Computed example of a mutant assay.
Amino acid sequence: MQKLTAAALASLPIGDHLDHIIPGLVFRVGARRRSWMLRYRAGGKQNKPVIGYYPESGLKEAREAAKAILERLEAGVPVVEQKPVHPKDAMTLRTLVGKYEKMKRAKGGRGTKSLNEAMRTVRRLLADYLDLPARQFTKADLKKARDKMARGVRKSGTLQMSDRAMTYLSAVLNWAAKEDHIETNLVSVTHKVGPGTVKRKRVLTNDEIRAIWTACPKMSGVAGKSYGRMIRFLLVSAQRLSEGTSLKHGAILDGRWRQGEEDNKSAREHLLKLPQMALDQLGEGEANALCFASGKGRRLSGISNFKRELDRLSGVTGWRTHDLRRTATTRMQDMTDADDIPLISRDVISAIMNHAIDGADGHYLHGTMNKAKSRALQLWEEELKKILKISGNIRQQ
Rank of each mutant, 00 (worst) to 15 (best):
A66E: 01
M219Y: 10
A66C: 02
L324Q: 05
W319L: 04
W213M: 09
K265I: 15
L234R: 07
R320S: 11
A289N: 04
K373L: 00
P275L: 05
F27T: 01
L235D: 11
R268N: 14
A90K: 03
E183P: 01
F306S: 07
G295C: 08
L313E: 12
S345E: 02
L93T: 08
G15E: 11
D337C: 06
E71W: 12
K307E: 09
F233N: 08
H322V: 05
T121G: 04
D19M: 05
A150V: 04
E381C: 09
N116D: 15
Q46L: 11
G318N: 09
H86N: 04
M335G: 00
R63C: 11
E243S: 09
S246C: 12
R146L: 07
P78Y: 11
Q397N: 06
S226R: 13
E183V: 13
T245V: 15
A267H: 09
A106M: 10
T167P: 02
K67P: 04
E381L: 08
K155D: 07
T327M: 05
R200V: 02
F233R: 11
V316N: 14
S345C: 02
I21C: 13
K45L: 09
L9R: 07
I303P: 04
D147H: 00
P275S: 08
L388N: 08
G221C: 03
K99S: 14
R331S: 06
T330P: 05
G111T: 06
M166S: 02
V198H: 11
I387D: 03
G362K: 07
G367I: 05
H181G: 01
S294I: 07
K113F: 08
G111M: 04
L388F: 03
M219Q: 14
V122S: 03
G157H: 06
G15D: 12
S156M: 07
R154T: 10
D347N: 12
K248W: 00
K265F: 14
